[in-house]
Design a protein around this nucleic acid. Sequence first.
RNA 1: UGACCCAUGGUGUAAUGGUAGCACUACUGAUUUUGGUUCAGUCAGUUAAGGUUCGAAUCCUUAUGGGUCAACCA
Length: 449
Amino acid sequence: MKLIKKGLAYVDDSSSEEMAAMKGTPTGAGKNSLYRNRAVEENLELFQKMKSGEFADGTHTLRVKIDMAHINMLMRDPVLYRIKHAHHHRTGDKWCIYPMYDFAHGQCDSIENITHSICTLEFVPHRELYDWLIEKLEIFPSHQYEFARRNINYTVTSKRKLLQLVNENYVTSWDDPRMPTISGLRRRGYTPESIRDFCDRIGIAKRENIVDVGLLEFCLREHLNKIAQRRMVVFDPVRVVISNWVPLQAGGKTEILQSENNPEDAGSGMRDLPFSREIMIERDDFMETPPKKFFRLAPGQMVRLKSAYIIKCEQVIKDADGNISEIHCSYIPESKSGHDTSEIKVKGTLHWVNAADAVEVEVREYDRLFKVEDPSSEEGDFKDYINPDSLKVVKGFAEPSIKNAKLSDRFQFLRKGYYCLDKDSTDEKLIFNRTVTLKDGWTKEVKKN
RNA sequence: UGACCCAUGGUGUAAUGGUAGCACUACUGAUUUUGGUUCAGUCAGUUAAGGUUCGAAUCCUUAUGGGUCAACCA
């Protein structure tokens, strides 16, 4: 109203197409609207009618009168209000006009006495209009400051693009653990501390950027390493029989061992770990003909079982197809963890679970959502570059203490990665999300050779 | 054929006109009952050309490269 009365705003009857045609181009001036010089009284009356719903959607707009030849296209008489017969939760159906973003922006900031209104770089040209409106409206002078948005490689951060991923079912929901949304990251197991640390490290500036997702993962691992409870879970098991352990049937027993919950946190305590004649280890922790520097199990070689004993591989049992079905090992009784008097030094330590009470769990392994670093800058649609293998569901066999897992717990599955319980879990079936893997020096070593 | 924004190692980000630094990554090595962690170290940078200045990443000019702008979207 103030602008109309000042003779700075007018009601325009042009259609959207007509207005676009008269707007000109970045290199050519636009033309004045036929309705630009309406009398103040007439404008007030028409605007009143727009508001009260006497016109159909799209028939009229309220525009501000600046300069149709302005070098900044946003200053060529931009629209302030358009008619929309939309139901509003406060005004119901009585109020039929809605402001454009540029018109509302400065006033919202001003009403709240915002001194620094920050936004992304594409709004730089809008600042001129923002300032112009504040000046003419004579309201509190908020100021807009622009910075570059933060991008992360192998994903998209645009809300509009993320919306497509949800709507078109490329992911299950906004909180799908592959989504770079707060709810997605949270469900995936990211801690708030790690996200804040990441934000501090990447800083803020005006230049285009794509931050390496590796930095986010570094912040995450650094925090998780300090707080995550250690557990042992075997994913692709092979059975190991401790040949010199007395079988249960012959009076042998299950020994209860102790293991620290977190070696980085002295106050985190210990937990019980059953150990007996038959255990499971990771299939790729054994090789019949190992390369150099393979510090795991191999015929005749010794390794330590974490928090348990040192074992020596004596014999490999294969099935009819030649696949390894069992590995027979002897254990060194004097090498018990914490009471080792054997003086044997081994290079490798393996995680394991006791076969008799292993708990089967489902594990969801996530990978990057896109195959390329910057999906939006590639040819064609960004969705053409979605990684089809971003979710892999696998089985795991966990030590019995896993049954006490709560939704808020963070775990490190030894030598594997960080995991958390997913909300899809039931009492019968525990489901874990892989938050992030551990740094893996060995695969790198293998690739070199 | 216009206007505006931006340009520092592979990545991200610092440096009243005064020694180009920090972090991640990569690579070496040490430690390790997680090939994790930790510790020590190495490689690597001011887009280019002029100008101003005792002195330029910083100021000026031009060039080059990248981004943005023609919704009744936000």
